[in-house]
């Protein structure tokens, strides 16, 4: 039973990590590419880390929780780095895809 849950978590996590990179590879402009990695990878790495917590807690005698630190850290830092990268891209006036709607008053 545990093995099924672990396997499912691992494959789901790896799949979302891949989706993030596919988004990075195929979307047409920078601001759209930003969405792939910031979202898909947090859940992707999160699922793999939960699998790691379960695995080490059940195979060894004591509970292993330190993987939670990486998840916590990624959930705090991913939006911050996304925000900074977007700000930098706006600052150097990176071009967007033509169909992007601009804010009403800018």
């Amino acid at each position: 039973m545990l093995e099924w849950i672990l396997s499912a978590l691992i494959v789901i996590g790896a799949f979302f990590t891949l989706v993030g990179s596919i988004g990075l590879y195929k979307l047409p402009d920078f601001f759209m590419r930003l969405h792939g990695p910031t979202k898909a990878t947090t859940l992707g790495v999160g699922a793999i880390l939960i699998a790691s917590v379960l695995y080490f807690s059940f195979t060894t005698s004591d509970i292993s929780l330190h993987e939670v630190l990486i998840t916590l850290f990624l959930f705090i830092t991913a939006p911050i780095s996304a925000h900074l990268m977007a700000k930098a891209a706006l600052h150097i006036r990176l071009k967007r895809v033509g169909r992007t709607r601009e804010p009403a008053d800018n």
Binding site: F31, A82, H83
Partner: peptide
């Protein structure tokens, strides 16, 4: 709020 927006449905806070 900005972090939440970045983590949830298809939106990223930019500035």
């Amino acid at each position: 709020l900005a972090n939440t927006i970045s983590l949830t449905p298809g939106t990223v806070s930019c500035d």
